[in-house]
């Protein structure tokens, strides 16, 4: 589905990504992990075409992201910070993105209803709380039933109920065979969702493996324990995985 080959990117002297090679497949829910500044956001933005790769190639369904922008109709993106024009209403935001993606006519409004955003249609974005804006972002990402979801810290700022609702939705989409790429600091939120983990550090891809494998290799059940274990005994585990 998404194939990343020899991807490198640096900002000035700072190397954000170093020769990344990943092949993500349908039905995977990949958790993108790594400390701050490890290159997670750069990787996501490279896939979205927001960051222009220096070297290497990214293809989505065989389509390179470099020239043609049409591949983005396959993606639903939920940004980390949902910042919208102050005086735009929720309805207008949805209408705008709908009009931009005219290729899709079957709208998945499950989240809109679940978050009860349809009742807030006339509210301007300025008047909304951070959490509600996050709900708008999430709903937008899922609105077009894309094949790929890119979710940047999706649960940050959401109340537990909404967070749970979103997680269920993610799971449902995963089961429907979609590719889900997700970053989160809250590892427990990824519990049960992530099927694979990509771990980045200092722009290097440390590992990319299935959660079951990791559990087996570390002997831990819980995801945060797994990760903690890996971080402690990094070199040994890495060897085991490979």
């Amino acid at each position: 589905m998404i194939k990343i080959e020899h991807l490198s990117k640096s900002f000035g002297k700072f190397a954000a990504l170093k020769d990344i090679n990943v092949h993500m497949r349908q039905g995977q829910a990949i958790s993108l992990l790594g400390p701050n500044g490890s290159g997670k956001t750069t990787l996501i933005k490279s896939i979205l075409g927001l960051v222009i790769p220096e070297k290497g190639n990214i293809t989505i369904n065989g389509q390179s992201v470099k020239r043609d922008w049409s591949y983005r109709s396959l993606i639903g993106y939920m940004p980390q910070i949902g910042h919208y024009p102050d005086n735009m209403t929720i309805d207008q935001v949805f209408a705008l993105i709908k009009e931009m993606r005219k290729d899709t006519h079957d709208y998945d409004e499950e989240l809109i209803r679940g978050f009860q955003l349809n009742k807030l249609g006339n509210k301007t974005m300025r008047s909304l709380s951070g959490g509600t804006r996050q709900k708008v972002s999430a709903s937008l990402a899922f609105l077009f039933s894309p094949s790929v979801y890119i979710l940047d810290e999706p649960t940050a700022g959401l109340d537990p109920v909404s967070s749970e609702l979103l997680k269920e939705k993610i799971l449902k989409e995963r089961e429907a065979g979609k590719l889900i790429l997700i970053t989160s600091h809250v590892l427990s939120d990824l519990e049960g969702i992530a099927s694979h983990i990509i771990y980045l550090q200092d722009g290097d891809l440390r590992f990319y493996s299935a959660v079951e494998e990791l559990q087996a290799a570390t002997g831990e059940e819980k995801l945060n324990k797994v990760i903690a274990h890996i971080m402690k005994n990094e070199s040994r585990v890495a060897k085991t995985i490979q």
Binding site: L48, G49, L50, W69, S70, Y71, R72, S73, I75, Y77, P79, I81, G82, H83, Y84, P85, I97, M100, R101, D103, S137, L140, I150
Partner: peptide, 17 residues
């Protein structure tokens, strides 16, 4: 500058930069 996040959201849609 304030609209940068919104711009990113728009750019993640299928449209030319």
């Amino acid at each position: 500058f304030n609209a940068i996040e919104f711009t990113e959201l728009l750019l993640s849609q299928p449209i030319k930069r």
